[in-house]
């Protein structure tokens, strides 16, 4: 391994991660500077609901695609979401495993599984870009940051497909590109929409608290009475 590769895979990553952590600390401090809102109305009389239950339900929402109409009706979109985010998490993990615990990447099955995951996520990224540009509503709400973040992640996932084998002896190019992109990604993330995972616990906490307090969360699906025909007994 050359000195250059050692630098970008180790020191550069540490510097980028430290920078990201510092910016995130400032960001959370900034968010906490705003006062927390209070409920002004009386709590719900629904005994099955409470603020606490609402918060737990809201946090668990991500793993319950049946809890939202949007994910219930767009299951393919939900699967894309899961694959894409798993791939990003695995990719971040890989950027730490390669320099500090390369032994974990030795089994070929691990490499192949990661490559399949990254390739699938890369394809999803391309599809999402197409959707963002072709759908009028999506095009209208998309900012340059949205588009750039998606392109950045998609290209980064593409690069990781070639970096996963971790074979600098066959050429350092793929690893160099991968680690430089990872460093850039870490520096850019706090300023982009990709940092939404930082806000996720806050937004879902407050939304869950409100909905639980008001008796909406946890949502209980009620079986709708079947409509009757002319001969039926019930009519609405």
């Amino acid at each position: 391994m050359s000195e250059s590769l050692r630098f970008v895979s180790d020191y550069l990553q540490l510097m980028a991660m430290s920078f990201m952590a510092v910016v995130y600390i400032f960001r959370i401090r900034w968010l906490l500077k705003f006062k927390a809102s209070r409920e002004r109305q009386a709590p719900s009389e629904n005994v099955d609901a409470s603020s606490f239950k609402g918060i737990v339900y809201s946090w668990a929402n991500i793993a319950m695609p049946w809890s939202m109409e949007s994910t219930r009706h767009m299951s393919f979109f939900y699967i894309q979401f899961v694959v894409f985010h798993l791939a990003v998490a695995a990719n971040i993990g890989m950027s730490l495993v390669i320099p500090y615990a390369p032994g974990l990447m030795k089994p070929m099955i691990v490499v192949r599984l990661l490559q399949i995951l990254f390739a699938a996520a890369c394809a999803i990224g391309c599809y999402r870009m197409f959707r963002r540009l072709s759908n009028p509503a999506m095009r209208l709400i998309s900012t340059p940051d949205d588009l750039f973040s998606l392109v950045l992640l998609t290209v980064w996932l593409f690069a990781s497909v070639f970096a996963a084998p971790n074979r600098p002896d066959l050429g350092e190019g793929p690893l160099m590109v991968y680690f430089i992109m990872t460093a850039f990604f870490l520096v850019y993330v706090p300023f982009s929409k990709i940092s939404h995972y930082l806000y996720y616990p806050f937004t879902r906490f407050y939304f869950g608290r409100t909905m639980g307090y008001r008796g909406v969360y946890p949502i209980k699906r009620v079986t709708q009475p079947k409509p009757t025909n002319n001969k039926g007994i019930k009519s609405i």
């Binding site: 968010l31 906490l32 705003f34 006062k35 927390a36 809102s37 939202m68 109409e69 949007s70 994910t71 009706h73 767009m74 979109f77 959707r131 759908n135 509503a137 999506m138 709400i141 998309s142 900012t143 949205d146 929409k193 939404h196 806000y199 996720y200 806050f202 937004t203 407050y206 939304f207 409100t210």
Partner: peptide, 26 residues
């Protein structure tokens, strides 16, 4: 007027478009 809840909602949107079809105006 900004509260933590509002600021979270203001910075948290990723423009995924999942909300679009849920709106009766849409």
């Amino acid at each position: 007027k900004l509260t933590r809840q509002m600021v979270g909602s203001l910075v948290g949107c990723v423009h995924c478009g999942m909300c679009t079809d849920s709106c009766h105006y849409v």
